[in-house]
């Protein structure tokens, strides 16, 4: 009886999964298609996913627009890589401390962090700007990286992950004579690889797509990040330049998709905790 039921469930399941996949993919396919269409065709309301009139002019425009393009790209890579590396260590350490260690003030700090996440970003903009100006950090990558060197949401996420972390791992390490710090860096962090890669992708994306901070903190075109640089060709009046916007979006998405595919290998095949491996 059970065997007869399964295929139907499977068919339904796959149908739902495929439909959902289609809804997820459609906007991207449209964006990619639009990036190869001339402006007139995009705004003409043509919904087809294949351009009638194929053109690479949008990409040529963007790449030809500024000699600084590769520089912006490099800047984004530097800020994102450095920022992500620092974040991984600081967030994981803080999350671990809040989940696994006992010390005075633990819950006060935990709820303090939680409360800070809840403050709307819009109101921190001007105070943060003034602080960075007083620290003499405006128009530098430090201004982008330092205030974002930790991410309270990710500290919180790591804490929740470590709540489920098996105690016996640390105990075994202690028996092997490893100190607390060694245990963390040699045993705990490698075991937390799936959660850390998840975090890494989110943090990297945060830096890569960050728009408000570069916009307010950077003023020299040589220091622009990609998101900011690509904005500079958007005119003030006259609506959205869909052709350039879509090409620009595709350019910003591609590196991150590649990164995701690389990380995806580690992503979900972390070490099993139930002794199967």
């Amino acid at each position: 009886m059970k065997k007869n039921k399964l295929p139907i469930i499977h068919i339904i399941m796959y149908t739902v999964l495929i439909i959902y996949a289609f809804f997820t993919l459609y906007p991207f396919l449209w964006a990619v298609a639009a990036s190869f269409k001339p402006f007139r065709e995009i705004v003409g309301g043509d919904l087809s996913l294949l351009p009638n009139e194929f053109t690479t002019a949008n990409y040529e425009y963007i790449f030809g627009r500024s000699s600084l393009f590769s520089r912006w790209f490099l800047n984004s890579v530097i800020v994102s890589v450095v920022g992500t590396t620092i974040n991984i260590f600081l967030n994981t350490m803080a999350g671990y401390a809040l989940a696994r260690l006992n010390f005075p003030g633990k819950y006060r700090i935990y709820y303090g962090f939680l409360a800070l996440i809840m403050v709307p970003a819009q109101v921190l903009l001007i105070p943060n700007y003034l602080i960075l100006r007083n620290l003499g950090m405006l128009d530098s990558f430090t201004a982008l990286i330092l205030p974002a060197a930790i991410n309270l949401g990710n500290i919180f996420m790591m804490r929740q992950f470590f709540m489920n972390f098996p105690v016996d791992v640390e105990e075994a390490a202690a028996i092997d004579g490893l100190g607390r710090f060694q245990t963390f860096f040699r045993i705990v962090m490698p075991l937390a690889k799936p959660s850390i890669s998840t975090q890494a992708i989110f943090v990297f994306m945060g830096f890569w797509n960050e728009f408000m901070k570069p916009m307010l903190y950077l003023s020299s075109p040589q220091k622009f990040t990609l998101t900011l640089g690509l904005q500079t060709f958007q005119g003030q009046d006259g609506g959205v330049r869909w052709d350039y916007t879509m090409a620009a979006s595709v350019i910003t998405i591609i590196p991150i998709v590649i990164l995701y595919i690389i990380f995806n290998k580690y992503f979900l095949q972390g070490v099993r905790m139930d002794g199967e491996k």
């Binding site: 700007y129 100006r133 405006l138 916009m215 003023s219 900011l228 500079t232 958007q234 003030q236």
Partner: peptide
Amino acid sequence: IEKKVYTDYNTQIQTDLIGGT
């Protein structure tokens, strides 16, 4: 001459004016 190109003029110029930059 240094050119500062604003992408979100209202937000940026106000921040600049407040910050004295």
